[in-house]
Write a protein that binds this DNA or RNA. Structure first.
Length: 403
RNA sequence: GCCGGGGUGGUGUAGCCUGGUAGCAUCAGGGACUGUGGAUCCCUUAGCCCGGGUUCAAAUCCCGGCCCCGGCCCCA
C-alpha cells in the first residue's frame, strides 16, 4: 500500500462538499467588492520567491531543477506570482485593479494541526489605490469573508508597521529580535517602553508618535472601519515579518485553533517595483482556507448533502426504457439515478432511500403491462401510477420547489 | 530542527502494563423477504504502519524508520 506524502491530504465527497461550500461563500464576498479571479502557475522560478522573501525561504520551499536546468519552486504563496503577472501583463489596466485568487500552495514545514505541506489560500490584491478608504475596504473584504462564512469566534487586529518601525528606530531598537518578540507579544523580553507602546489602544494617543502623515492615515482607516461597524482591535504589535509591508497591516485569528490560529493576514505593501513595474500603491491579504474551515467546523459548520431528485427502478424488461427516460430527465437538468445493480425492488428502494432521493420511479412488469409508471414519494410513502408526461410535470414542479 | 503522545478490519475501538486462539460496534455486500425503503435477525468480505532484534512464542517487550496528533522553533 502507498501512503500519502507527508503533510498532504485526500478529501472525500463529504469534505469536498464542505470545501466547495466555503469556497463559494468566500468567492461571493470577494466578488461583491468587485474582485475578479486570476490564476497563475503552480510552480515558478525559484528566484521569484527569493526576491520577495529572502534566501531564508529556500529552506521552506519545494525546490527542484527541471530537465532544462531551470531552478523552479512550488509556490509557497500567491502574492508574488500575482504581482509578477501584473508587472508582466496588466500594468496598463484601469486602476484600481482588483484581483483575487484561490489555489493551493506548498511549504516544506513540519505538519501539525492546521499546518500542512499542501494547503489552500484565497486572497486578493488591490492595485493602484492607496487611500485610507481603499485600505479600509480591503480589510473589510477580509472581515466580511469571515462573517459571510458564518464564523463567530474570530478577532481582527489592525496595526501599522510604518508607525511601529519609526518608533523602534527612534529608540534604536529596530532589530529582528525585538520585532519577533513584538509580533509574538513576548512581554518578558520587551523593554517596558515598547510594551507600553504596543499596548496603546486609541489612535488619538498616537499624537506624540510619527510619522505624522502615517499616524493620520492609520487613524482614518480605523475611523472608516469603525463607522462601518467593523469590529477590530488596535494592535501596533503586528510586525508581519517582511520588509515590504509599508503601512497598515492586519491579522485575523480564530482563537479556537490553538497554536496555528492565524487564519488571515495582509496589509499595504510595495512589491510592484521589485518585479519591474511602475511603483503603485498596493495592498492585499491571504486567507488560510484550511484553517478557516477547521475553525468553522469547530462551530458546527456543515455542508448539506443533497440527494437525487429521482431514483429509477426498472425491471429487466424495462432497462432500455428506463435508461432513455433517465437521460431525458437529466437533459432537463434533474439529478437522476437509475438502479444499476439489477436489485430486487425492495433492495432498490432501500438504495434509493439511502441515497436521499426525493422520489422513486418504479418501471416494473405491472407498469409495463398497464403502460404507466409508478411514482413513489420517499418522504410520505405515497405511491401512484402516472403516465410519463404526468410524471415529468410532477417532477418539474417538485424540482422548482426544492431542487 | 526540538519535546511529548499515538498508529489494531473501510470507519470507531478492546486487547498491550502482566508475551501464548486478535474481540466488539459500525459501514459495505448478500440472505430471511419470489413487486415495495429506513426495523429485526443471520451470513460474508476485511485488520495488528514498515523493518530489524529478544523469545519456544511478539499486536504486546527493545531499536530504527514512516505517518498522525499536541506543543516549541519558524511562519512569506
Amino acid at each position: 500500500m502507498f501512503e500519502r506524502p507527508r503533510g498532504t491530504r485526500d478529501f472525500g465527497p463529504e469534505e469536498m462538499a464542505e470545501r466547495r461550500k466555503l469556497e463559494n461563500l468566500l468567492r461571493k464576498t470577494f466578488e461583491s467588492y468587485g474582485y475578479r479571479e486570476v490564476m497563475t502557475p503552480t510552480f515558478e522560478h525559484t528566484e521569484l520567491f527569493v526576491e520577495r522573501s529572502g534566501e531564508a525561504i529556500l529552506e521552506e520551499m519545494y525546490v527542484f531543477r527541471d530537465k532544462g536546468g531551470r531552478e523552479l519552486a512550488l509556490r509557497p504563496e500567491l502574492t508574488a506570482p500575482v504581482m509578477r503577472f501584473y508587472a508582466q501583463e496588466m500594468q496598463r489596466r484601469q486602476k484600481p485593479l482588483k484581483l483575487y485568487y484561490f489555489g493551493q500552495v506548498f511549504r516544506y514545514e513540519r505538519p501539525q494541526k492546521g499546518r500542512y505541506r499542501e494547503f489552500w489560500q484565497m486572497g486578493l490584491e488591490l492595485i493602484g489605490a492607496g487611500s485610507p478608504e481603499a485600505t479600509a475596504e480591503m480589510i473589510s473584504v477580509a472581515y466580511d469573508s469571515m462573517l459571510n462564512a458564518g464564523l463567530k469566534n474570530f478577532v481582527l487586529r489592525i496595526g501599522d508597521v510604518r508607525i511601529l518601525k519609526d518608533f523602534l528606530e527612534k529608540k534604536g531598537m529596530n532589530t529582528g529580535e525585538i520585532l519577533r518578540a513584538v509580533d509574538k507579544k513576548d512581554d518578558d523580553n520587551l523593554p517596558a517602553e515598547v510594551r507600553d507602546f504596543i499596548a496603546i489602544d486609541d489612535p488619538k494617543e498616537l499624537g506624540a508618535y510619527g510619522p505624522e502623515d502615517e499616524v493620520i492615515r492609520y487613524g482614518e482607516v480605523l475611523d472608516i472601519l469603525k463607522s462601518a461597524g467593523v469590529e477590530y482591535e488596535m494592535d501596533l504589535g503586528i510586525a508581519r515579518g517582511l520588509d515590504y509591508y509599508t503601512g497598515v497591516v492586519f491579522e485575523i485569528d480564530a482563537p479556537s485553533l490553538g497554536a496555528e490560529k492565524q487564519i488571515c493576514g495582509g496589509g499595504e505593501y510595495r512589491l510592484a517595483e521589485l518585479f519591474g513595474a511602475q511603483p503603485v500603491p498596493t495592498s492585499g491579504f491571504a486567507i488560510g482556507f484550511d484553517r478557516t474551515l477547521l475553525a468553522l467546523k469547530k462551530e458546527g459548520f456543515v455542508a448539506e448533502v443533497p440527494g437525487p431528485c429521482v431514483y429509477i427502478i426498472p425491471s429487466e424488461k424495462s432497462i432500455a426504457a428506463a435508461f432513455s427516460f433517465s437521460r431525458k430527465l437529466r437533459m432537463g437538468g434533474m439529478w437522476v439515478e437509475m438502479e444499476l445493480g439489477r436489485r430486487a425492488i425492495g433492495k432498490a428502494l432501500k438504495k434509493a432511500s439511502n441515497s436521499g432521493a426525493r422520489y422513486a420511479v418504479i418501471m416494473g412488469e405491472d407498469e409495463l403491462r398497464k403502460s404507466v409508471l409508478s411514482l413513489k414519494d420517499m418522504e410520505t410513502g405515497d405511491q401512484r401510477e402516472l403516465s410519463e408526461d404526468e410524471l415529468i410535470s410532477v417532477l418539474k414542479t417538485a424540482r422548482q420547489k426544492r431542487y
